[in-house]
Design a protein around this nucleic acid. Sequence first.
RNA 1: GGUCCUGUGGCCGAGUGGUUAGGCUCAGCUCUGCAAAAGCUGCUACUCCAGUUCGAACCUGGACGGGACCUCCA
Length: 487
Amino acid sequence: MQPLFLYNTLTRKKEEFKALNPPFVGMYVCGPTVYSDVHLGNCRTFISFDIMYRYLTHIGYKVRYLRNITDAGHLESDGDVGEDKISKKAKLQQLEPMEIVQTYTVDFHKVMELFNTLPPNIEPTATGHIIEQQQITEEIIKKGLAYEVNGTVYFDVEKFAKDNNYTALTGRKLEELLENTRDLEGQGDKRGRLDFALWIKAKPEHLMKWGSQWGTGFPGWHIECSAMSTKYLGEQFDIHGGGMDLQATHHTNEIAQNIAYCGKQPCNYWLHTNMLTVSGQKMSKSLGNSFLPRELFTGNHKLLDKGYSPMAVKFFMLQTHYRSTLDFSNEALQASEKGFDRLMESYSTLQTLTASATSSEDIKALQAKCYEAMNDDFNTPVLIACLFDAARIINSANDKKTNLTQIDIDLLKDIYRHFLFDVMGLKPESENLKTKQVLGKVVEMVLHIRDKAKADKNFNLSDDIRNKLTEAGVQVKDGKEGSSWKI
RNA sequence: GGUCCUGUGGCCGAGUGGUUAGGCUCAGCUCUGCAAAAGCUGCUACUCCAGUUCGAACCUGGACGGGACCUCCA
């Protein structure tokens, strides 16, 4: 087994990974809330953890990878004010809450498939684990670390913090947190300002609600992850992941819940992915500066010059380490797109190389560098740099400027297969997409010629072009702003 | 305001106390009927100030800039 080092948020250091029960590894990643389209930040996080999953598997671990679907329970704010996001949207659109959930879950899966990520081994839903969440809540009350007021159950943070390090994940001081927590209106019946809800009493108009010993309500924001990770990975497992924005609140509270429930730290390694930015600002739903994966693929967004294929976007993301912020720009995307094409082209070239008797390159060393990169906290940018070295060697060999033995050629094929395809989950662009892009350009060109004809008042020609295009299945529409077309 | 992270060449982005990151762009060369592709070469960077050190982009302190979290978000 390769010695693997990863950066642990809990210790703020790179540590060698030691599985609790090798070769088995339990990994939990906080999944999406399915009340609207996934945006790219979500995608980046899930792509990052997909690659960790793939790499752990590649070096021989048997991984059970869980990623939940949050289909209930998230509030507009952390108190008992606000509304369940899903039922809010449902009321807005006159739909059943589960209809919203279904729509966005299906869409989420489609997008993740476009990015060629593997499905998790288990993808549990919050609504499917209400009982488990209630049981944990009940147990925490029994331990004296939660209390019920008017049908809502709160976690007693300050009491918990007396015997436990509540802020272990952030390294903050509890006193400072207490001082700096803003005084929000409608904090309800909380005793402490840091207390958070495990179970929330539902108002009559609330759509998603369940019966419980505390009355009709719904689960709090953090409890589902504790419930589902415990159920499927046990009280202690290896890796817990999520976006950095979850670190301070969601994960901190999740750890507190688990310790309160069973007295154990839920997991050894906490991994956090950094944010996506647009023009230097965090891309987020609430800021409204996010673009949807589909908008990125089609280029149908005011910030984008053109569309980028899912694989080009993924490659772009992987050229930055997962713990660095990644800024989206047209230039950067285009640079990645070209680089990705070149890399893929070199793989085709590799298939046609003829072997020499001797080798002038050290392919074994290159392979070792690839492993070294991934073993260093999944450093995909360095891995990609190594693959570009491979591409240069392949192209040189193709130009007969360097020599490779058959053994080296086979080894290069292994490197591409293992790292580019198996670990990073990249794949050649589908012909379909490329054909479409080319077709689009051809049609634009024909229409450009037609515009010239129109300008010269050569309407015989321009009409002929339009008729022929229509025959071919391309509908041309002339508007004030020029011609547009669709298939 | 508090806590933390960060500042690298035209752009994007790795990185280690002394040795080439890599990609894209640009220029030149080789190849080519011309291009394209590919290869080679070049443009050789580390916010500023001070300190530690034989030596710092990499360590320490300060300044300035950017960002995240503290409030729903991956």
